[in-house]
């Protein structure tokens, strides 16, 4: 396990060498938090993307929401929400879910600008997302398209943390039980009515804080216990 994690930092250095100058390179030049550091001291960034599809090669990012957390204190002053100008029309279905129409998205910024801004804040932090592969693949695709380089970040996935716990207990579960709103209910977190990238990012951050608190036995909480393997 240690080797695998060590390779994360190793991989960052390798990608850094290949990265073209610009925001992606700047991002990769900041070391990742050590997997052995205590979670209480690690800076996190909870992120949620609203997209036009579930797969990066067929869809586009419509909006991005994120909020920072350190010492398990979520700083709402850092809360950021950005709409992205899309190239294709937004399919009706996802417009209904996210309540973002073409017109609204037209009021947004370019993907390059939004992702550059995000990478600046994300540097040196660990990403939190619920079902993180989506966020990871869309950001990866964006970096490929914009800068022609590969993206890498240490991540915690609140869905994976829960799934791993259930699997360790050899409990069976239905997929819907792992949804963000279900899990929040289970941890006694409030129900948020709104459904946008920022609220969902905040929701994931709170859920992670609750998950860690439940697993906190008073001793050390090494980051590697919660990192998702990529």
């Amino acid at each position: 396990m240690f080797g695998n994690l060590l390779s994360l930092e190793f991989r960052r250095e390798r990608l850094l060498k290949k990265a073209p100058p610009g925001p992606l390179r700047d991002f990769l030049s900041v070391p990742f938090p050590s997997p052995n550091s205590d979670c209480r001291e690690v800076p996190f960034l909870a992120l949620d993307l609203e997209t036009t599809g579930l797969e990066a090669n067929h869809g586009e990012i419509v909006s991005i929401g994120y909020v920072e957390m350190i010492g398990f204190r979520i700083d709402l002053g850092s809360a950021t929400h950005r709409l992205v100008i899309t190239e294709g029309a937004i399919p009706e279905q996802s417009a209904v879910i996210h309540q973002i129409t073409d017109d609204a998205a037209a009021g947004g910024r370019s993907l390059e600008k939004v992702v550059s801004e995000l990478l600046k804040v994300l540097a040196g932090k660990v990403l939190i997302a619920h079902h993180a592969p989506v966020e990871f693949s869309f950001l990866g695709a964006a970096c490929e398209t914009i800068w022609g380089g590969r993206f890498l970040v240490p991540m915690v996935d609140t869905e994976w943390i829960e799934r791993r716990t259930l699997e360790r207990r050899q409990q069976t579960y239905a997929a819907r039980e792992l949804r963000l709103s279900r899990l929040r209910d289970r941890y006694g977190l409030p129900r948020y009515r709104a459904h946008d990238a920022l609220v969902d990012a905040l929701a994931a951050a709170e859920l992670f804080a609750a998950q860690v608190a439940e697993r906190d036995t008073g001793g050390r909480l090494p980051l590697k216990e919660f990192l998702t393997r990529l």
Partner: peptide
Amino acid sequence: LPRDLSVRYLR
């Protein structure tokens, strides 16, 4: 006001 706040979960 919300921008001045932070959030904590305490067991």
